[in-house]
Amino acid sequence: MKQMINVALPKGRLGEKVLAIFESCGYDCPAIHETNRKLIFENVDAGVRYFWVKPSDVSIYVERGAADIGVAGKDILLEYAPDVYELYDLGIGKCRMAVAARRDFYDNTERTLRVATKFPNIAKTFYDKKGRDIDIIKLNGSIEIAPILRMSDVIVDIVETGTTLKENNLEPVETIVPISARLISNKVSYKFKNKEISRLAQSIREYCENRDN
C-alpha cells in the first residue's frame, strides 16, 4: 500500500512558492487550485496530502506528527526549537533576523535595554551571549511602532529589504542570523515513511540545486 505524506504548508507568499517547488517535483495536487472552502487537499496518485496552516504553527503540526513534513522559516525553528529533523535549506524566503532601532539611537549601556519582539527566545539567547541585561516586550505584530513610541529601545525582528524600517525612520543595527525556509520532518514519520520522505527530500534537493546552478 502506498503511504500518503502529509505536508503542512505555511499560508502566504512563501507557501505558494513552496507549493510550486513541490509541484515541479512531481507532487502536484490539482485540487488545491480550485476555489472552495476545503482545508485539506490530496492527490492519491502522487501520494501527498497538503494543508495550509499559520506559518508559525507549521513546526507544531510537524512535531506532533499531524504533518509528516512541512516547510518553516529558520526563525520559527530557532524560536520554538521543535524536536524535528531539518532536512534541507530550500534557499527561498531569504531574510535575516536583526536588531533595529531609531536612526538617532544611542546604546546607553548603563541602562537595561528594552527589546520589543515577536521572538523572545531568539532575543534572549542573543543578548545572553553578550551578557546584556534586557527587558523583553513580547508583541504579536507591528513591532516597528514600539521604538517610535519609545516603548522600547530596539526591536528584534525579521528584515527583508529594510523598506518598512526606512519608512518608519528606523535602521538595522546588527544582524543576528540569516533566515531561509527549511524542509522539516517529524522524527517518527521519517522512520516509518522513510522511503517516501527520503524520495521527496531528494527530488526537492535536486530541483533546488539545478535552480541555483
Binding site: G65, D83, V188, S189, F192
Partner: peptide, 8 residues
Amino acid sequence: FIDGVPAS
C-alpha cells in the same frame, strides 16, 4: 518508536 505515536 511506534507507528502512530509522534515521539519516541
